[in-house]
Design a protein around this nucleic acid. Structure first.
Lengths: 357, 357
DNA sequence: GGCTTATGAGTAACCAGTTTCTAACATCGG
DNA sequence: CCGATGTTAGAAACTGGTTACTCATAAGCC
């Protein structure tokens, strides 16, 4: 025999003595009890053991007790792998995010994890690293190993999502809406958030704004930018390429100074915080010289100096709701309509009156 | 002979005029192709299809082509559930953390997710919510659905872990060492980190320290506190119960002022940041009046005002290493010895000379 | 008391793969 | 030309549960 089968399993004793079947191959988790052994020990059929383990009411109390005792004695627990195959469900749901380092997705992760955990479901997590095609592959793969999917802020183009939508179902979209797709989506009214921010800033007398743009593939970034353009007909707007992390914002500080804006609208709280620190390092007063706003209200935003004016979005709530929707879909219900959460403006210390020129 | 040969051929309708078989039960994912259908289409046996799908070299090129074509035509992909059962492995690893909202664990999550993803493994995540017994149950459950575990900062008592250690294997411990346990651990030399901090603070003339304590169950907290007590024989140390989140630190600010310490050692960066903001709100100058240090070096620590002096630990590296160790263990190798990472002191702006009384 | 109905539990057919064994066939050496 | 050896691919036995049938028994009814 060629050694091609040597897949890591240590064939302990393949001795010529030939005991019945010492250790066939890998599967056996070291003598774990099987349903057959329990059935034998209790003197009943495998079907009866299965019924007892699943709490079927059609078993006599006496047998229930016997099976329970045998299962206990053998330390038996049904094999999840076998149940998956037999039942056709996994007891697992999956979450795909572009970036696990982003508090936005961490919030969804937490909410989803807790809601799914409470319902006794396990959670598979995968990070697509902002790569659209990778994301599609991960999603398909994850879906095959779960009963349902939550796609957070998917970077894949709408038509690509539609083309695989059927194989992804049931699934829920978070932080994005895709019209043609037959999946409920939970999203943020980015335009409303931006309008609130702009109203706040113009109310303070700001006329020259800079926008620290998020990642190019982000739908949220596109919406926020579009809303900013729409909301600011009489304003002067400079768009600075930036990113989504602290360092991106920090690195953009000189450009902010260079463009002469009196107020900076950050794509999110991280770039805003980074820019805030960067500006102060350059000797720019916040908010005396320049006002700064963020987006998302990450836990940290309250603890910058000065605290960041931002727009709050219910991150964990999205996770919880995503579970609710997914649960409904998995039960064949409708999953409900799309929801757009209204963000809430939080005015803190990083914004102030525009400096009189 | 009994009908035991009924290997997958569906005797479509044996019922009296009933419909073919509308929807037997759950399993069928709406007409997904099975290995039997592919075998039939290609005119070969199921065994051959299996061999082709797994790249076995013992199939003639002609058959390989035929099977490939049939699989392609039917859009066939092997059922992960069936493979799990047949192979006895899941292609999945699991991570248990006490709190998904903590950047410390997010770092491990990221590192692990990326390393496992690169190796084509999926990642199951569960949050124990700081509850020791819950954690044990989650770990056992997660282990049964995966090939290996990473336990981050487990809250469960050492003897409890030892008692279930065998059923958890293979697994790796992160942020904690448990002597009796036969699992490699990747931990931080908390004592060294604390010593560095204390040396730095005493070098600046501080003699009265306050420690913002972490969660009671945390092993890291116990180590840091013990090291602090040991490192400060000539110092006055006040221990303030606190927690691990921003708000905990913020709420502790008045107590800090009350105890008269000139330097605050936070359990981690979050409580330190919270305290920093709280102190400044109370009119206390940092670092002029009070110095503050954190621990962990979360991404945010660089962006507080002033930036936080802290001790850096390689969070993502721990995740990557955890994967390496787990991978070795899953292959029957040793998994290597325990590793204690040496943290690195980062002096930033939140610490300064002790005020002359 | 015989017939119908309920009930409890066993039999065997699934779920969808993997792998051992075995048999047929081709190749090679003597 | 025949036996030994080497390949290939199929048959069938697994992986460990679930559940549709089936059947025996007991209870209910007339």
């Amino acid at each position: 025999m060629r050694a091609s089968t040597g897949n890591g399993d240590q064939e302990q004793d393949r001795d010529g003595g030939g005991r019945p079947r010492a250790g066939r191959r890998g599967p056996r988790p070291a003598g774990a009890a099987t349903i057959s052994r329990v059935a034998e020990a209790a003197g009943v059929s495998r079907a009866t053991v299965s019924r007892v383990m699943n709490g079927s009411p059609t078993v006599s109390p006496e047998l229930v007790a016997r099976v329970r005792a045998a299962a206990e004695a053998l330390d038996y627990a049904p094999s999840p792998a076998a149940r998956r195959l037999a039942l056709g469900r996994t007891g697992t749901i999956a979450l795909i995010v572009p970036d696990l380092g982003n508090p936005l997705f961490q919030g969804v992760l937490r909410g989803l994890s807790q809601a799914a955990g409470k319902a006794g479901r396990q959670l598979l997590v995968a990070e697509s690293d902002e790569d659209p095609e990778e994301e599609v592959i991960l999603a398909l793969e994850a879906r095959r190993n779960s009963d349902g999917l939550v796609l957070a802020s998917p970077r894949a183009p709408a038509e690509r999502l539609c083309s695989i939508g059927e194989r992804l179902a049931p699934f829920v979209l978070v932080y994005r809406e895709v019209p043609g797709l037959g999946a409920p989506s939970l999203s943020i009214d980015n335009a409303a958030g931006v309008r609130d921010l702009v109203a706040h800033l113009t109310g303070l007398g700001h006329r020259r704004l800079a926008y620290l743009a998020g990642p190019p593939g982000s739908a949220g970034n596109a919406e926020r930018l579009a809303a900013l353009r729409a909301a600011a007909p009489g304003l002067e707007l400079t768009v600075l390429p930036c990113g989504s992390m602290f360092d991106d914002g920090h690195a953009a500080a000189p450009a902010v100074v260079g463009c002469g804006a009196s107020a900076v609208v950050g794509f999110n709280d991280m770039v805003a915080s980074g820019a805030l620190t960067g500006l102060r390092e350059l000797g720019v007063g916040v908010p005396e010289d320049v006002s700064i706003t963020g987006f998302d209200d990450i836990p940290f935003a309250r603890y910058t100096t000065p605290p960041l004016t931002t727009v709050s979005i219910p991150k964990s709530e999205l996770g919880r709701q995503a579970w609710e929707r997914l649960w409904a879909l998995m039960n064949g219900e409708s999953g409900g309509y799309n929801v757009r959460y209204q963000p809430r403006l939080l005015v803190r210390g990083s914004t102030g009156p525009a400096p009189s020129r």
